[in-house]
């Protein structure tokens, strides 16, 4: 059965890490939809604000006034711009996806691989937008490319609205004309690479999942207050999968000056028994401070492509 109100609205959820451009991506899609004459809402949600931490952003576009706000629990389009988030339980990137969801993953893997590994329902589209961004823009900022993929998959946003929206949004954050031009170019490439909107797309969204009301009872204050009693919990949280680039030390040429050891802001470099620096890849965030600071220039950076 068709549900008239749900047909009118499309809900897009963007997953990425702080600094990757997902807030801007949600805004580009928002502005492009606005230019197409839709009612629109877009908003980012951060946890504690820091670069590299998982974040989500949302865009709603609708033919009718939008009677909802805030988080999108069941997206029609779900884009995961950072593949390392796929395995991150806390990022919860598959929350609320259903048979009608189109999930887009930024990865060099084919869609079938993502389906096999994660067993997710709905349509899956993959595209290595990072590769396109690096080649065309020269940076791994994914706002325009991710937005372009989403715009195409909505099936209701034209190339020219996308182009205008990229220009408008990037001008508003004072990017240089030349950079904006490159972003437009990268966006149009992505727009072209994505096939037309999926036919299931217009099927109605599932009714709200049934939920029950519970009556809260008094709990012992050890439970009923926001404290953590377990020790050593910080070390359980590995941050190595935040890396876009992996620093690699050429120990043959290293002079053991310890500059990298001193500069690493995350204390991920230790000195081994022979006096050589060793990187803790479980936790190195790939900030590349060591790469820039090494006076002998013997640290190289390798693009991480298989982080999961």
């Amino acid at each position: 059965m068709k549900n008239s109100t749900n047909e009118m609205i499309k809900r897009v959820r963007f997953h990425g890490r702080g600094g990757q451009g997902m807030k801007t991506a949600s805004r580009i899609v928002g502005t492009a939809s606005f230019l197409e004459g839709f009612f629109v809402q877009d908003c980012p949600l951060y946890g504690a604000e820091r670069r590299g931490a998982p974040m989500v952003a949302f865009t709603r576009l609708s033919k009718e006034p939008i009677l909802e706000r805030g988080l999108i629990v069941s997206p029609d389009i779900n884009i995961i711009a950072d593949e390392t988030l796929l395995g991150d339980k806390n990022a919860n990137v598959f929350q609320g996806i259903w048979e009608g969801t189109v999930t887009i993953v930024n990865t060099h893997y084919p869609a079938s691989h993502v389906r096999n590994v994660h067993g997710i329902v709905g349509e899956i589209v993959t595209l290595d937008v990072t590769e396109i961004a690096l080649n065309v823009i020269g940076e791994s900022v994914l706002s325009s490319t991710a937005a372009a993929v989403v715009c195409k998959l909505t099936g209701v946003i034209s190339e020219s609205s996308l182009e205008k929206a990229v220009t408008r949004e990037l001008s508003s954050i004072n990017l240089k004309k030349e950079t904006i031009q490159k972003n437009v170019q990268a966006a149009l490439i992505c727009f072209d690479r994505i096939p037309e909107a999926h036919p299931h797309y217009f099927e109605p969204i599932k009714e709200d999942k049934k939920d029950e009301i519970v009556k809260l009872e008094y709990a012992d204050a050890c439970l009923g207050s926001p404290s953590v009693y377990a020790k050593g919990s910080t070390k359980l949280k590995k941050t190595g999968n935040w890396r876009l680039f992996r620093p690699v030390i050429d120990h043959e040429k290293c002079s053991r000056c310890y500059t990298c050891f001193v500069y690493c802001p995350h204390s991920c470099i230790s000195i081994d028994g022979d006096g050589y620096p060793q990187i803790d890849y479980d936790n190195c965030k790939g900030c590349l401070t060591c790469f820039y600071e090494c006076p002998k220039k013997v640290i190289s950076k390798d693009r991480e492509v298989k982080a999961w």
Partner: peptide
């Protein structure tokens, strides 16, 4: 009445678990 649902309760139980807060352990 304090509005709270089973889903909410699942979420807080999950958090309490991460925080290692079962009463027995404490």
């Amino acid at each position: 009445q304090l509005l709270y649902t089973k889903n909410d309760l699942d979420q807080i139980n999950n958090l309490l678990n991460i925080a290692g807060k079962t009463l027995e352990e404490l």
